[in-house]
Each structure stands twice: as structure tokens, then as C-alpha cells.
């Protein structure tokens, strides 16, 4: 029992270290970018709203603490972070936490839908394909999905816009809601949001299916050589039973431990999909913020993405025993 507590503390320490490095990274990188945020408020840019003299500029830098030495700024950053304060977006003139809170639900909706659908689809197709390994269907499916994995999300997005938005004209081309929405009921609101979700979510789902499919298929293929599945086949158990009760239970494990990687892939995919469809999530925000060198917003966006991945890994570590009871027993003594 003592051993277990020690192991948990060690694991927690490792995660804490990763989070701290991410924070330091996150803090330093935007600060090393050329120029500073006041450039985008002053007359150096054509679209700039203000002309600013050097005294005003110095006062602004002082006000935002950008004139302090970096270690002081970092401690400041950590202190504020601990209170849930992600600093203030100088460009948008809003607290970053509020900006992120406005955009995050859209990304969660989009990425969550894609995560659920691509997992379901990928697991089923992958398992099925593995049981038919070598057949024409298996080869076609694998080839098509390899092709899809090689296609960037924005190209798929372009094709989807062409097919459904331009040629068929059945679905909206972008945005998350109709412009200036006024809904008669919450049902109408949900319908409108759903209509706008279909294309981006479908593109993101299709882009993510390949990863699930290939993981599932390859694990399943290697499990198929196991004696207990041979026995199941010898007992003439129906295919469905062999796939779901015998194969799936073991084949799901590598996929489950890939959760952190998949969250990273989803975040990356969402950046492109949101930008193609002008979907107002974090990915779109990241692009907008990079364009105007908005440090705090970029910091916040990067932090949320990184924490999501760390969180997913933590979740996998904490629950892996539930999914695979053998792993915990063996892993603990080692």
C-alpha cells in the first residue's frame, strides 16, 4: 500500500513538472516575439486606432507590467494564474479568461462531437476490417482512410464547402449561428446551431477517424493471433460475439492510452477546421490573436490546449486499471 502512495506522488510530481515547463514556455515564447502589443495600438500599423507618443507608450508598458524584468513578470503571471486570472487581452480589451470562456464552448462542441463520432466509427470500422484482414473490403477501407489521413483538414473543409455549401446549397458555409440570430424558441436556436455544426463536425470527424481506425485495426489484427480467439473461432462463436466480447475488450486498450495524443490531434484539426469554416472557437481565436501579436490571449489559448492534453493523460493514467485490471496489478509491483 505504501508503494502505491509513493507511485501516485511520483506520478503527480511528473505531471506537475510538465505543467510548470508548459507555463514557463508559454510565458516566455510570446514575449520573445518581435514587436510588442503597443505597436498594434500605435501609428505603425495602418489599421491602428491610435497615434501614441513615447511617454504614453512607456506608461502603457508600465501599466501592464511589461517593463519589469522577466522573472518578476513570470512570478506575477503565476500568481495571477493561481487566482484564475489569465491576464487581460490588450487588443480585445477584455480579460483573457472571458475571451476564452466565450470561445471554448464552441470548440468543445465541435471537438467533442468529432471525438465521439470518430471514436465510434473508427472502432467499429477498425474491428470489422481486422476480422476481414486481407480482403478487398479491408484493403479498400485502409487505403481510403490512409488517403484521408494524408489530406489536410482545410482541404477537406474546402471540398465540403464546395459540395454542400456551393453546389447543393443545403448547409451554411461558415459561422456557428446565423448572423444576428433572433430565435423564436430555444428549439429554433438549437436547430440553427446544429445546422452550422454539421459541416465542420463532419470534416473534423472524418479527419480523426483514420487515426482511430488504424490503431484499432492494427491492435485487433495482432490480437487475432491469440489462442483464445482461435478457440472462439473453433467453437464457431458468431462473428459479432468474437468481435465485441473477445477482441474489442483487449483491442480497446492501446486506443484508450492514445487519448492524450488524440486530444492533441483534435486541437490541431480544430484550428484548421475552425479557420476554414470561420467557426468562432479557440482555433479561430488563436489565428486572430497571432495576427495582432496579442500575447495574453495566445498564452491562454496555448495553456488551455496543453492542459487539456495533460488532463487527458492524467485521466488515462488514473482510470487505466478500470479498463484493464491486469495492468494495475502488474505495474504496481514493478
Amino acid at each position: 500500500m505504501k508503494l502505491r502512495v509513493g507511485k501516485i506522488v511520483l506520478k503527480a510530481g511528473q505531471y506537475l513538472a510538465v505543467i510548470l515547463i508548459i507555463l514557463a514556455f508559454n510565458f516566455l515564447l510570446p514575449r520573445l516575439m518581435p514587436g510588442d502589443p503597443t505597436d498594434f495600438l500605435t501609428g505603425t500599423d495602418v489599421d491602428a486606432p491610435y497615434v501614441m507618443d513615447s511617454q504614453t507608450r512607456a506608461r502603457l508598458l508600465e501599466y501592464y507590467g511589461l517593463d519589469k524584468p522577466l522573472p518578476v513578470q513570470f512570478l506575477h503571471y503565476l500568481g495571477h494564474l493561481a487566482r484564475g486570472d489569465l491576464s487581460y487581452s490588450i487588443y480585445y480589451k477584455t480579460p483573457v479568461s472571458r475571451l476564452l470562456a466565450q470561445r471554448l464552448p464552441w470548440t468543445l462542441l465541435l471537438a467533442g462531437t468529432a471525438f465521439a463520432l470518430s471514436t465510434l466509427l473508427g472502432v467499429l470500422l477498425g474491428a470489422f476490417s481486422a476480422f476481414r484482414a486481407g480482403s478487398r473490403l479491408d484493403r479498400t477501407l485502409t487505403g481510403v482512410l490512409l488517403g484521408i489521413r494524408a489530406t489536410p483538414e482545410y482541404l477537406m473543409g474546402m471540398l465540403a464547402i464546395l459540395a454542400f455549401g456551393v453546389a447543393l446549397r443545403v448547409l451554411p458555409l461558415g459561422g456557428a449561428t446565423s448572423p444576428f440570430p433572433r430565435y423564436s424558441s430555444s428549439f429554433a436556436a438549437a436547430a440553427d446551431i446544429l445546422r452550422h455544426l454539421i459541416l465542420p463536425a463532419a470534416v473534423l470527424t472524418i479527419a480523426q477517424v483514420a487515426d482511430v481506425f488504424l490503431t484499432m485495426r492494427n491492435t485487433m489484427v495482432s490480437i487475432l493471433g491469440e489462442p483464445y480467439l482461435l478457440l472462439a473461432e473453433a467453437k464457431a462463436l458468431p462473428l459479432r460475439r468474437r468481435i465485441f466480447s473477445y477482441g474489442m475488450r483487449n483491442a480497446i486498450l492501446p486506443l484508450y492510452s492514445r487519448m492524450g495524443i488524440r486530444v492533441g490531434l483534435l486541437a490541431t484539426g480544430a484550428i484548421f477546421v475552425e479557420n476554414v469554416f470561420n467557426y468562432p472557437g479557440l482555433g479561430r481565436l488563436a489565428y486572430e490573436a497571432t495576427m495582432v501579436h496579442d500575447y495574453p490571449t495566445l498564452q491562454g489559448m496555448f495553456l488551455v490546449t496543453a492542459l487539456a492534453i495533460v488532463g487527458a493523460n492524467l485521466l488515462v493514467d488514473a482510470t487505466y486499471r478500470l479498463i484493464d485490471p491486469r495492468a494495475g496489478a502488474a505495474g504496481e509491483e514493478a
Partner: peptide
């Protein structure tokens, strides 16, 4: 391996 690659690349490229 744990950090999101593209978001980091975006920040790096911008910087």
C-alpha cells in the same frame, strides 16, 4: 510529446 505541436509551432513561427 505531451504538448500540442501545432499551437506551439504557431507561437514559435510568430515569434
Amino acid at each position: 510529446l505531451a504538448i500540442p505541436r501545432l499551437p506551439l509551432l504557431i507561437v514559435l513561427a510568430a515569434y
